[in-house]
C-alpha cells in the first residue's frame, strides 16, 4: 500500500508451500527470526502458509509476478515448467547426500546452472537460493506391508518431481500433491500410498490414521533442500546490506533447521512407533536396487536434453570426487552405535 514512512521496515511477503500446521512453517520461522534480528528491524517478513495468496505449487508464478516477494518451497514443485528444476533437490542419486549436493550448488557450479535455467531458459524474474539440506526421505507409508518390487505394482502413490518419474518407471501409478492434501487424498481414495518427507510432518498430517506401515530409506529423494525464491526487482531494489542479510539468512537457517530437524524428526519417529502403533521398516533391498535401475533408465531419457545432460555431468563429477572423500573418510557410525546400543538397529 502507499504512504510508506522512511523509517518503516521493508516488509517481505513470503509465502511457503506448507500448510499452517506443518513443522516446516517452524523451519521457515527460524529464517524469519534470523533475518529480522540481523537487520535490526529494518526487514520484516510477513510469513504466510500455502494458499494464503497462491497455491502451494504456484509460488514460483507468484514470486515471478511479484504477487508475493519471496517463497519458501522446493524446486520440484515447479518441474512442470522444466524437468530440470528437479535436479535441485530431487535428481538422480549418484551417491551424494543433501549436504553433498548443497555443496555442489554453492561450490560445484550448481548456482550458475540454476541461473541459466530460471533466467535464460525460462525467462523468469526470480533469484533462487537453497537452504536446509534434508535427511534422505523415507520410501513412505503403505496400508499393507510390502516385501518387494512385486507388491508395489499398480499402487497409486504420491511423490513429486523426478521421483514421480522414477516411481512410474518402477510400475507405480503416481500422483503429485502438495503436502497439506496428502492425508485427505488418502481418505478420498485418490492415492493408496505416499511419501512426503520426514516423521514430524507425517505425524502432524495425521498420517498414522490412514496407514501404519512406514518404510525408511530410499533413493527417490535423498538430497533435497529448501528453495528460497525472491522476486528479482524486489531484491535488486533493496540496500546491499539488506540483500546480504536475506542471502546469508538462508545459510543461517540451514544450520538451525538441521539441529531442529534432528531433535524433532527423531522424537516424532519414536512417537509414531510407540504411541500410534506405526511399524517402522527399512525398505526392502530389492526395491532399493530397482530404484537405481529405474534411475539408469531415466538418466538416459533425460540426457537427451542438452541442459539436463550438462547438469548431470556436473553433478556426477562433483559426487565422484567429493563423495569418494566422504565415504573413504567416514567412521562406521553403525558399528559404534551397535556397540553402545546393541540390538536396536534393524538394518
Amino acid at each position: 500500500a502507499p504512504a510508506v514512512l522512511a523509517q518503516a521496515p521493508v516488509v517481505v511477503k513470503m509465502q511457503t508451500s506448507w500448510p499452517a500446521s506443518d513443522i516446516w512453517m517452524d523451519f521457515a520461522r527460524q529464517y524469519v527470526v534470523a533475518v529480522e534480528e540481523m537487520s535490526g528491524g529494518r526487514l520484516k517478513i510477513d510469513l504466510l502458509p500455502a494458499g494464503a495468496v497462491v497455491g502451494a505449487f504456484q509460488v514460483l508464478d507468484g514470486v515471478n509476478d511479484g504477487v508475493i516477494d519471496a517463497a519458501h518451497s522446493v524446486s520440484s514443485y515447479w518441474y512442470g515448467k522444466h524437468k530440470g528444476a528437479s535436479f535441485f533437490g530431487t535428481g538422480p542419486v549418484f551417491g551424494g547426500s543433501a549436504t553433498t549436493m548443497l555443496g555442489w550448488y554453492y561450490q560445484g557450479g550448481g548456482q550458475e546452472l540454476y541461473r541459466e535455467l530460471t533466467q535464460d531458459i525460462l525467462g523468469l524474474n526470480v533469484y533462487g537460493l537453497f537452504g536446509f539440506p534434508m535427511p534422505a526421505q523415507p520410501f513412505g507409508w503403505f496400508k499393507k506391508p510390502i516385501n518387494g518390487v512385486a507388491d508395489i505394482q499398480g499402487i497409486k502413490y504420491r511423490t513429486v518431481g523426478l521421483a514421480a518419474d522414477l516411481m512410474q518407471q518402477m510400475g507405480m501409478s503416481v500422483a503429485q500433491l502438495p503436502g497439506g492434501e496428502i492425508v485427505p487424498a488418502m481418505e478420498r481414495g485418490v492415492i493408496d500410498a505416499f511419501e512426503f518427507n520426514n516423521p514430524s510432518s507425517d505425524l502432524r498430517f495425521g498420517t498414522a490414521d490412514v496407514a501404519t506401515n512406514y518404510y525408511l530409506s530410499s533413493y527417490h529423494q535423498a538430497s533435497e533442500a529448501f528453495e528460497f525464491l525472491f522476486n528479482r526487482d524486489f531484491m535488486d531494489d533493496l540496500d546491499p546490506d539488506l540483500q546480504a542479510i536475506l542471502r546469508h539468512g538462508v545459510d543461517a537457517s540451514a544450520a538451525s533447521n538441521t539441529y531442529f530437524a534432528l531433535d524433532n524428526y527423531s522424537a516424532d519417529l519414536k512417537k509414531l512407533q510407540e504411541q500410534l502403533g506405526v511399524t517402522v521398516y527399512r525398505t526392502p533391498k530389492d526395491i532399493l536396487a530397482a530404484q537405481l535401475v529405474a534411475w539408469d533408465a531415466l538418466i538416459e531419457t533425460l540426457s537427451k536434453d542438452d541442459y539436463m545432460r550438462r547438469v548431470m555431468e556436473s553433478q556426477r563429477a562433483w559426487v565422484e570426487r567429493v563423495t569418494y572423500y566422504e565415504l573413504m573418510n567416514a567412521a562406521d557410525l553403525g558399528l559404534a552405535y551397535n556397540h553402545y546400543f546393541p540390538g536396536k538397529l534393524a538394518i
Binding site: 495468496v53 497462491v54 497455491g55 504456484q58 509476478d65 504477487v67 492434501e181 485418490v190
Partner: peptide
C-alpha cells in the same frame, strides 16, 4: 499493478481445484 497477476493466479487456482 500486481493485483491483475493475483487475479489471474486465483482464477487458475479455481480452474485447477480438484
Amino acid at each position: 499493478n500486481r493485483i491483475f497477476d493475483l487475479f489471474i493466479n486465483q482464477t487458475y487456482t479455481v480452474m485447477s481445484n480438484e
